[in-house]
Each structure stands twice: as C-alpha cells, then as structure tokens.
Design a protein around this nucleic acid. Structure first.
Length: 826
RNA sequence: GCGGGCGUGGCGGAACGGCAGACGCGCUGGACUUAGGAUCCAGUGGGUAUCCCCCGUGCGGGUUCAAAUCCCGCCGCCCGCACCA
C-alpha cells in the first residue's frame, strides 16, 4: 500500500471535524495551557510566514495536549485594516467587508488544509459588530478614566495611506506599512495615555523571564527612562521662565547658551520687538517644512539662530543667549535644552559652528588641566567639578546630587524622571475600523456614546475616496445623530480606531467569543489567562506586544482581569527566506504554501519548516529539503506498514529481558523518547527533535533486516508506536492513519505522550576517548560504570596507549568518568 | 553613533567547556531493474605517505589538562533604535 497523502489528509481532516477532536472545554480537572499564535490579518492567502508561525504553535499545542494539559488553541482574524479599504478604492466595486470575508474564507480553508488543531468554535473576526462593540466599550473605559483624550498636536501623517500614524508605526521617518515618507501635521486627534503606564511597562519587563532578551531590550529602549532635573532659567526683561530638562545638572556652570525647539510656545514672545524676529521666523518656517526624515537624520548638520533674547543661569547669574535650533524636539522633555559645549557632543558641534564660548566645568581626574583650546570633542565622562563656584572639587557624580538638591531647596528646579515613550495616537481617518464612540453636540460639546447604545455600527454604504478625511464624514446617515444628553442634533466622531486596539485584547475574547454581557466572562478569563505560550514575528516587538501589555495593565487596574501581564512566554520566530532574502512579490522569490501543499501534502510541508532551522532563526526555503521530508515520511510509511504484524502483539509484559539487538533497539527507543521530549516540549528545538526521530527510524530499518526469529515483537511494537506518537504533533495526518492501520481505535492525538524508563536508557558499555595533551589518540570500549580511577588504570594499561606515551614523562592524568581520559606528557 | 544577534563542510544545520560536522540536502560508487528522477547499501571537511599522520568552527591574542563553546581586541553580515538633552 502506498502513502497517498491527498486521500489521508482529506479523510482525517473530515473525521477530526466530525468528531470535534479539537474542541476544548473551559473547565477541566487537567492543568490548563493557553497556546496562542498571533492571529493573521486576512490579506488574501496564507504565506510562508503564517505557515511557519502556525506549524510551530501546532506542535506545541498538540504535544502539550498529549502531555495531559487542557490546551486552548484558538484562531481568529485581525480583520479591520487598510488593505481592505485600499482594495475598495482601487477596484471600486468591492466593499471592504466583502473583500475581508472572502479572504477569511480562503485562509480558513488553507489553515484547515494544514490540519492545525484549532478549536474552530472560538473563531471570530475583529470587524464583526459582536466584537467591535466591545472594542468600543473598552475605549469608553479608558475615556471615563481620563486615559482617552483628544488633543491638537503635530502628528505623523502618511500621505499615501491618507491617515495619521502612531509613533510606533513610523520607522526611520517612513510609514512602516507603505514605506512612504511621513509628514508632520497639526491635527486634533484621539490618544490613549500609555505614558501613564510607562513606569510599570518598564519595571514589569523584569518579570517576563520567558521572553527573549532582544524583545525586552527593544521595549526598554522604546520606553526610554532617564533621570534628570528640570531647571528654570529666568528670561531677561520678561516675566517668563524657560524650563530645561537635563541629565547632567553637574554641568550647569558650563552652560553658555540655551536652545528652544522651533515649535516652542515661548519663541513668539521672546521675538517680540527684536530685530532678529524676521530671520528667526523664516528659519523656523524652513525647519518645520522639512519632512520627519530630513529633520531627524543624524547626518543633518545642526542648525540654529540667535533670538536676540537672553536668560540668566540660575546659579551663576551669567547672561546666556537664547537660540532656536533644529536638533531640539518639542515632544521630549520640556522642548528646551541648556547648551554645555564642553560636555555634550551635540552642544560642542553647535558651539563651534556659531562661535559660542566653551566652558570646562568637569576635569578628568587623572589629567592636570583641560585646556579649552585643546578640546577636540566634548568630555563626557565623570571627573572633578571646576569653575563651578561653591561646588568646585566635588566628583561629578556627587555634584549631580548636590546641585539637584540645591536647586530644589531654592525652588529653581526639581528632579524628574522622563520617558521617551509618547501617548498612543489611535485616530485613523479611515472607514474600515471600529468607530470611536464619541458624539459632538452643538450645545453639550464632546460626549461619549452611552454603553447601551453600543455598538456604533459602521454604515455599509459609503464612498471610498482617499481624501484624507474619514469616508464616514461624507455619510450623512452615520454622521448625524442626536445628543445622548439633551436630545438635540449632534454629529458623530468620524475617525476610527487604530487596528492595534483590536489586537490588544483579542486573546481575552478567545475564552468566550460569543459573550454578550461584557467583553468577556471573568471566570473564564481567569481560568485561561495569562497566555502560556505566545508565538509570532519579532516585527511586533514594540507595537502589538507593548500595546497588549498596556491594555492588560489597565484592565487589571479596573478589575476586569486578574493577570498583570498577558503573555508568560514569548517565542519570536525567524523569517522565511528564499535565496537569502525575505520572500516578496517585488523580488519574485515567493513560494506559495498552497502549491507546496498540493505537491507534497500538509504533513511534508509542516515537517520541512520545522526541520530546516530552529524556530527563532531565519529559515532558508529549499525545495530539495522539502523533498527530503517527503522521502522521510514515505520511509516511515513503509517501515510501519512492513510485515511486523503489530495487531497480534499484546502490549503486556515482556517475557524476558531483551538482549543483544533487541536490547539495543529498546534502549534507543527510550533514549529517543527522552531527547524528543526535551527538544519538543522544553527547548522547542523541533529540528533536533525530528533528527532524533529520523535516527530511530534509520535504526529500525536495520532492525527490520534482522531474522524474524531473532527479533522480539514487543520491542518492535514499542519502537514503532513511539515513532508514531513522537511524530504525531509534527505530522498529524500520516501518524493518525498509521495508528489506525496498526490496529488502534482511538485517535493518536488523544494518546498520552510517551514516557521513558530511566533505567532502560543506561548503556552498559561506552566508548571513551584517550587524549594525549588534549588530542584524541585512541578510543576504548569500557564498561559504563567505571570510576575515574578504574578508567585511568585501564587506559594506562592499554598497549596502544603505552606505545604512544613510551619514553615520555607523565605529568598529569585527567579522567572524566563516562567521557574521556586526558594524559598530559612532556 | 548606540543596542542586539550571527559567523562551523558544497548547502540547511548538530555539538551540558570534553570524540567538531548528528540529521537532512547535494555529490560519488554499487545493488535491484526493460528503465530509474523510485528504493536499498556504502562513501563523502581539507591535506596527505590514504586504515598513518597533520591541519581545520571569520581573524588575532588569552584562560584551561581540554575552547566552536569562556574572556579581551579586531573584521564581516543581519536586525532594531536613531540628535531623547
């Protein structure tokens, strides 16, 4: 009988669905395990990245199930988003909802073809009103606590996507989705106050022992905590103060100028009546017209201009000129910085360009004197304070504290912790998203939509035009409503929410996807959460993963959940490459999962993506590698279907202790179980797990050739069944078929994961290595249980070893039990 | 510039500080066959005097009886951040 993957895979997929094999109960006496892969955006068809992500998750889910866990393994759709709307704009006759549903249907069918063990009853799409009702409801929870607010700000605008973007969605000055250059626009937009959680998001990273360091470091950097002091500088001739933020208060006496961001609100006042006013204004206009990418590139030279105004150093009372410059950002700190050319590289360059004085106030400890003229770069390290009045002689670290305290006492400043993280801009000027549930009444102003009126439904009939304004603004039926307070005429907010909001809470919804009384049933959420293992691409390290953590902390605070972190363990899988590059249409190196499944079968393709590389590493696609996996499955098929007569072997007790080849095979079986268990369920090194199974299969091919009378049927049965059980999470269809063919009634996927007997894996004889001066010279077969001394004796008595070391003086002998003996000679 | 990761045969990749190259691909030879792009068997890091020895994990040092693995300094590639005061 030949291995017919088409037939087998179809047969079992139907059977599993009919038997509801992957339906998981919410409450069970077994320990729970929540295995989750990042749900996909339904972009059209499944790609290799999805395939790899879900193959990894499926092995974990299946092996944990076999280990006796009650495993939640769901799948759904991150279904709101730009591509659907762009398709509508481009093709005109297709509605985003229909486009999305079509894609979902295609991709669901593909996922089913791959035989993943999802509990499909829990499937949902975030664009369904039953889901986004609760997305809106959650927005209101933020709103009621002052954590969702609207403000006018200079925001990132992508002209190509015709919408604003969050900071996290801008990479190197370009839109991370379409790579178009991002502009700054002054707009009133909705924000979520993620900055209120900056400290906890940072501090709790330490709890995440099961996350890759790389991701934690990226988040830490993104949150960007820094300790410093906010210092007030009095403006001359005006009753105004300029606040600056600095991490180097110890250099306060070295300030020779002050710089404001071009957008700083005080600039206008400072310029009033100054002859410089016109020049400064034109400079500011020029800078603000630059795109984000031009403005922030480090290669761009620092440029600035004197405002004509001065302020006073709060400690020395020196007169300090005030500049405006392109390198100061309004959004960070106070939007103003003190210039200390001697001890900050940017200030150093700026001062040289504009001939500003350089004043050394920190002296390196081991050098006599630092001459200003000899400075070729700013001195950034610690040292001793000089030219700093009463603080002279203090080590700079102590000086930081001393000056901070002095400023605080005098009311001239205060210590402050600053974060780089900004609030999350969630408005999008697009149709295909969850409407922000807010109305504007001419009388009562801005009001949240009452919870009883949710969901605010998306109207179906709208015109899709890339106008830069939400299509909802042109939809009278949607726009006009009545005020929930006074009943008068009101207008709806027409912006929709960033789709990252939808994906910030979906993992809670999987516990009760049809819940109508709330976003979820807390009893069920408390059973399943946190997610035990989350799997996805590293590209979400600071987008989705940070937002999800933020939501979780907020939901915890308002009592909706009991966990403070969403994902206990995180696995970031590598990319799938072809010819050394990421698969992409433009490079023309895309391999479609669909074609591969048709040509080789789901089991083979799954096996390949798991075998070709460990999960975190990038994977190079190789069709020859796929063929190798196909060959292996055929080998397994022929091995198991060979004439072993397994059905007639009782799995009861063995008659006698197996000897010789039978003992070897049994030992290898148990050794394989041990290694595959570790690699599959603990280390997630599926490639080595599979190679270990291959080795057992290879050995069994040898065993098959042993005369039947010399083989013990129980040994064969145990070995073959172990191969099937260990392989079942990787190749679920073929193992299920072979399990049935070998006389089993119940699904292989309901069997317990095999366990090994530690006493059976022990070797009685091992090959040890004899080294002379660290080089391998000889191998010896010795009893495994020899002590170090016994090993040493045996090795030194060995004729071949004596020959090698003849005439040499033995300095030392290092025996390592079970491994080797190293003889050090002169 | 800063941060992180990675450099091992022809290729993908294995190796608790202890036999470098498991497993797979490719290649070579053989068997079976009308045929083989199926299957099975054997070989496969380099050098070489070819069952003997030498050299070999990006490069250069160091620690150790012993280093792909640990430490220091370079080089190369990939990813992330990017004037954050």
């Amino acid at each position: 009988m030949k291995y017919n993957f088409q037939e087998i895979e179809r047969k079992w997929q139907e059977r599993w669905e009919k038997d509801e094999l992957y339906t998981v109960p919410d409450f069970s006496p077994s320990p729970k395990y929540y295995c989750l892969e990042m749900f996909p955006y339904p972009s059209g068809k499944l790609h290799m990245g999805h395939m790899r992500n879900y193959a990894i998750g499926d092995v974990i889910a299946r092996s944990k199930t076999m280990q006796g866990y009650n495993v939640l393994h769901p799948m759904g759709w991150d279904a709101f988003g730009l591509p659907a709307e762009n398709a509508a704009i481009k093709h005109g006759n297709i509605h985003p909802a229909d486009w999305t549903m079509e894609n979902i249907n295609t991709m669901r069918q593909q996922l089913k073809q791959l035989g993943f063990s999802y509990d499909w009853r829990r499937e949902f799409a975030t664009c369904h009103p039953g889901y986004y009702k609760w997305t809106q409801w959650l927005f209101l929870q933020f709103y009621h606590r002052g954590l969702a607010y609207k403000k006018k700000a200079a925001v990132n605008w992508c002209p190509s996507c015709a919408t604003v973007l969050a900071n996290e969605q801008v990479k190197e000055g370009v839109c991370e989705r379409c790579k178009h250059e991002v502009e700054k626009r002054e707009l009133a937009q909705w924000f979520l106050k993620i900055t209120a959680y900056a400290k906890r998001l940072l501090d709790d990273l330490r709890q995440l022992k099961g996350w890759p360091d790389k991701v934690k470091i990226m988040q830490e950097h993104w949150i960007g905590r820094s300790e410093g002091v906010k210092i007030k500088f009095k403006v001359e001739e005006l009753a105004e103060e300029i606040e600056v933020f600095t991490t180097r208060p110890d250099t306060l006496f070295g300030v020779t100028y002050l710089v404001l961001a071009p957008e700083h609100p005080l600039v206008e006042k400072l310029l009033a009546g100054k002859e410089q006013a016109e020049a400064v204004c034109s400079f500011i206009r020029r800078v603000r017209n630059l795109s984000e990418i031009m403005r922030t590139a480090t290669t761009v030279e620092k440029e600035g201009i004197f405002t004509g105004a001065y302020c006073l150093n709060p400690l020395s009372q020196e007169q300090i000129p005030i500049y405006v410059a392109n390198y100061v950002l309004l959004e960070y700190g106070t939007g103003a910085v003190m210039g200390v050319p001697a001890h900050d590289q940017r200030d150093f360059e700026f001062a040289h360009k504009y001939k500003l004085p350089v004043k050394v106030v920190i002296q390196p400890v081991n050098l006599k004197g630092t001459e200003v003229d000899s400075l070729t770069a700013a001195y950034l390290d610690e040292g001793v304070m000089v030219n700093s009045g009463p603080f002279n002689g203090l080590p700079s670290e102590k000086g930081k504290k001393a000056i901070s305290e002095y400023l605080e006492v005098k009311g001239l400043g205060c210590r402050q912790v600053n974060y780089r993280l900004r609030d999350w801009l969630i408005s999008r000027q697009r149709y295909w998203g969850a409407p922000i549930p807010v109305v504007y009444c001419t009388k009562c102003g801005q009001l949240p939509v009452p919870e009883k009126d949710l969901p605010v439904l998306l109207p179906r009939k709208v015109a899709f035009k890339p106008t830069g304004q939400s299509p909802l603004a042109d939809c009278a039926e949607f726009l006009h409503t009545t005020c929930p307070k006074c009943g008068g005429p009101a207008q709806r907010e027409t912006d929709t929410m960033d789709t990252f909001i939808c994906s910030s809470w979906y993992y809670y919804r999987f516990t009760c996807p049809r819940e109508e009384k709330g976003p979820w049933d807390k009893k069920k959420v408390d059973v399943w959460l946190p997610v035990d293992q989350y799997i996805g691409g590293v590209e979400h390290a600071i987008l989705h993963l940070l937002y999800a953590r933020f939501f979780t902390k907020f939901l915890y605070d308002i009592g909706l959940i009991s966990n403070t972190e969403p994902f206990t363990n995180m696995l970031t899988q590598g990319m799938v490459l072809k010819d050394g590059a990421k698969m992409s249409k433009s490079k023309g190196n895309v391999v479609s999962p669909e074609e591969m499944i048709n040509a080789y079968g789901a089991d083979t393709v799954r096996l390949f993506v798991l075998f070709a590389a460990p999960p975190e590493r990038d994977l190079e696609w190789s069709e020859q590698g796929v063929e190798g996996c196909s060959r292996f499955l055929n080998r397994v098929w022929r091995l198991v279907t060979a004439k072993w007569d397994l059905q007639n072997i009782s799995s009861g007790k063995r008659k006698a202790e197996p000897k010789g080849i039978n003992q070897t095979i049994r030992r290898l079986t148990h050794q394989t179980i041990k290694k595959v268990t570790e690699d599959t369920t603990q280390r997630f090194n599926f490639n080595t797990a599979l190679s270990t199974i291959m080795e057992l299969v290879n050995a069994l091919y040898q065993y098959k050739e042993v005369p039947e009378t010399d083989r013990e049927p129980e040994v064969a049965k145990e070995a073959l069944e172990s191969v099937l059980l260990l392989l079942a999470p990787f190749a679920p269809h073929i193992t299920e078929e072979l399990w049935e063919l070998t006389g089993h009634q119940e699904s292989i996927h309901k069997q317990a994961w095999p366990t090994y007997d530690p006493t059976l894996i022990v070797e009685d004889e091992i090959t040890i290595v004899v080294q002379v001066n660290g080089r391998v010279k000889e191998r010896m077969l010795v009893p495994a249980n020899l002590s170090a001394n016994q090993m040493q004796e045996r090795v030194l008595a060995h004729p071949r070893v004596q020959q090698i070391i003849a005439g040499k003086e033995i300095n030392k002998v290092i025996p390592v039990p079970g491994k080797l003996v190293n003889i050090v000679v002169k």
